[in-house]
Design a protein around this nucleic acid. Structure first.
Lengths: 303, 303
DNA sequence: CGAATAGATAAGTTCAGCTTATCTAGATTG
DNA sequence: CAATCTAGATAAGCTGAACTTATCTATTCG
């Protein structure tokens, strides 16, 4: 590339390639067809490479052209979207929040209304993702995960949680400490990330109870959230993270039949890439999220 | 936005915001500082919104400015990357291939050399992702998954696979059909997607054998790949997909102690978004991948 | 307190990008 | 099959967005 191509030239190429016609591109860009033709010719000269085959009165993308089209389309769409947001008379900041799927489903989505009402005028996009999330390819502003991944971005420990046996109040009456073995246990199949989350087996070990066959038997759920729902429905005893079950314990939908808890091996961590760190919305959300997490984990119901 | 902002103006803003100084941006864009100052002023007028606070002889981003910066940086980086690729004297197409993690680790990465050598000059980026992959946010050219997700993109069934009990040759000698219950089974914990993959329990059912407690016991692995490695090491009998174990069966590292197979409920599927479909590299890779998959699944060793 | 620096502004220049007009050649149609 | 239409290429010239230089201001810094 002797000289970098002009942005307008690339834009004209993108429009022409996408619509399949110089005339349509000219219409879209509000210029004459001749202008599009010249811009594209100039880009081709600058790049030293044809982007269209001129076949009679049609144009067909060359291989190089067809390769570049999707990437340019995405880039110009993004720029257009930025311009539209910036030009709107009411400017709403956007915030992309990524959390583990089980947290996106229940816990956080319920609380999000609270943030929205106290910090109005923010478009929050909540994503449930497993680690690792692609900070380099996507503009994620803030990521909550279990354990510190992402050494390359500023990461802070938020709070240390534990898991607690929980069940519906009705079921609790029938339990004696030694009687665990006779109760239906709810097993949680943690996602790919959660290899180090404790299982019932670990809990029995910590409690000093011989699990026998009980630690194997029972229902199982493929997410923390689903396990909690099963427990609330009275189908068994789940081993739930404090952050998830605190609310249900407070309002009595769940009780703790046994006091023995088991610390998680890792704290919850918050990662904010440098590029997002100085945004006001991000700072506000960070503080709000930390407070919410600590409040839930330090709930009196978990003491 | 009375009038859409000029691309050059946005580019000047991006450079100035990123570098933190108009002078540095001017340097980067090879223009005078005055030019940058004017371009940015024009954008601000067009948008009806300040992007920088002018504080003495410094500039500081406004909230609107800081919000927009990362998105513009990404977009212009992408455009720059396209221009560089286009301007290089040797043009190498790029291909982004997404497959389930277990396939990215072993099976496909081994074979990829074969594609590279027969279709030279292609930059293949191989990603291991769980479904769903974000076609709308990232430029994925081709996705191989188990079962049809992605109704919104053209998807084709490739081949119907099955799972087979496999183990190391040495271990096989000790097995009798009824003796399964006495052998160490290797359980595979499929990822979040794989809820419908068959388990040993399903296999026993299909084989008409009473599993007893055997279907519960044994080692477990959290990916097909890991389970296969355990089986090759002689640590037990794994239930492996044909596509993964065909090669090891052919060269004798594994054997099938029992003939009973179990069809998967879904075929492997290939999804190619419309934007990528007409690219030559994508078409070539599609055909190659289909052939490789069918060849593996229809291996004589699996009959 | 100079000297240096970063940005704003004014005035003038230039060339990228635009228009209009004309040309070509396949497609369409009566 | 000629007449017409359409999509793009090209030429010539115009215009204004983008640029430069020069000057001004305010601040920082040695």
């Amino acid at each position: 590339m002797a000289v970098p191509p002009s942005l307008k030239g690339l834009q004209a190429f993108e429009a022409a390639a996408r619509t399949g016609s110089f005339a349509a591109a000219a219409e879209e860009l509000s210029v004459s067809a001749a202008a599009v033709s010249q811009l594209i010719r100039t880009v081709e000269e600058q790049m030293g490479r044809k982007l269209f085959h001129r076949v009679n009165r049609r144009v067909v993308l060359t291989e190089a052209g067809v390769e570049m089209l999707p990437r340019l389309t995405m880039a110009f769409q993004e720029i257009g979207s930025v311009a539209r947001q910036l030009g709107g008379d009411t400017f709403r900041p956007r915030l992309v929040v990524s959390v583990p799927p089980s947290m996106a489903m229940g816990w956080l989505s319920q609380r999000l209304a609270g943030f929205a009402s106290s910090h109005g005028a923010v478009d929050v996009s909540l994503r449930g993702d497993d680690d690792p999330v692609p900070f380099d390819r996507e503009l994620i502003d803030i990521r909550l995960s279990y354990g510190p991944h992402y050494r390359e971005h500023p990461t802070e420990d938020i709070v240390q949680d534990a898991v607690y046996p929980v069940c519906a109040p009705g079921l609790a009456d029938t339990i004696k400490p030694e009687g665990m073995a006779s109760l239906p246990l709810i097993h949680t199949g943690w996602g790919p990330t959660g290899a180090s989350f404790p299982s019932w087996h670990n809990w029995f070990e910590a409690a000093g109870i011989e699990p026998g066959r009980a630690a194997q038997r029972g229902l199982s759920a493929n997410s923390s959230r689903a396990a909690l729902d099963l427990a609330i429905s009275g189908l068994g005893v789940a081993l739930a993270q404090g952050i998830y079950c605190a609310e249900a314990l407070e309002d009595g939908r769940l009780v703790r039949p046994l006091a023995q808890a088991l610390e998680l091996r890792q704290p919850y961590c918050l990662t904010i890439p440098e590029r997002s760190a100085r945004r006001d919305v991000v700072a506000a959300f960070r503080q709000w999220l930390i407070d919410e997490c600590r409040r839930a984990v330090n709930s009196p119901a978990l003491r």
